[in-house]
């Protein structure tokens, strides 16, 4: 077993070179290089945490903006509805007044026209009476050979016309 057989002659050399090479491993690699590697890992982890926090904050901001937007839009919609209702009411009132005015004008014109129609009818009737009484006087003269007084003929026609 060389480990024991060579112990006396080689232990010093092994210990010496182990001290050199393990010392190099510890001081150069372990103490100097490993912390840098771990710092990179830590930096990355911190960056990830920061990014996640930023994303979370952005999400919260978006949520808040949406909530304000909702409130704002509800308010604006309400305002718009009120405005529409008000203008509808105004328009209705306006058209009512205009309709009323137009109705008055139309009523007046109807009344005037009615009056004109009545006048025309009564004058026509009067003319009809005159013509009828004349015709009745003529008919009587021709049929009976008697002359009828114009007043009597008119009275008879009046009676016949109006029952």
């Amino acid at each position: 077993m060389p480990q024991i057989a060579q112990l006396a002659e080689t232990y010093a050399s092994q210990v010496f070179w182990l001290a050199i090479f393990f010392g190099f491993t510890f001081f150069v690699i372990g103490r100097h290089m490993v912390p840098k590697v771990m710092a990179t890992v830590e930096l990355r982890e911190r960056q990830i945490v920061d990014d996640l926090a930023a994303a979370e904050a952005a999400r919260k901001a978006a949520d808040a903006a949406e909530a304000t937007w909702k409130v704002e839009s509800t308010r604006q919609r309400g305002e718009a509805h009120a405005l529409i209702a008000k203008s509808k009411l105004e328009a209705a009132k306006h058209s009512e007044t205009r309709l009323a005015a137009a109705g008055k004008v139309i009523d007046a014109r109807i009344a005037e026209a009615d009056a004109r129609i009545d006048a025309a009818r009564s004058s026509a009737l009067a003319e009809l009476e005159a013509v009828a009484s004349e015709a009745a006087g003529d008919i009587v003269t021709r049929v009976a050979g008697i002359t009828v007084d114009a007043g009597a003929a008119r009275a008879a026609v009046k009676e016949a016309l109006h029952g």
Binding site: S13, F16, F22
Partner: peptide
């Protein structure tokens, strides 16, 4: 003490 560079030291 002998501190000869051996195959052990080489592989370290």
């Amino acid at each position: 003490h002998s501190i000869a560079f051996t195959n052990s030291a080489l592989w370290m």
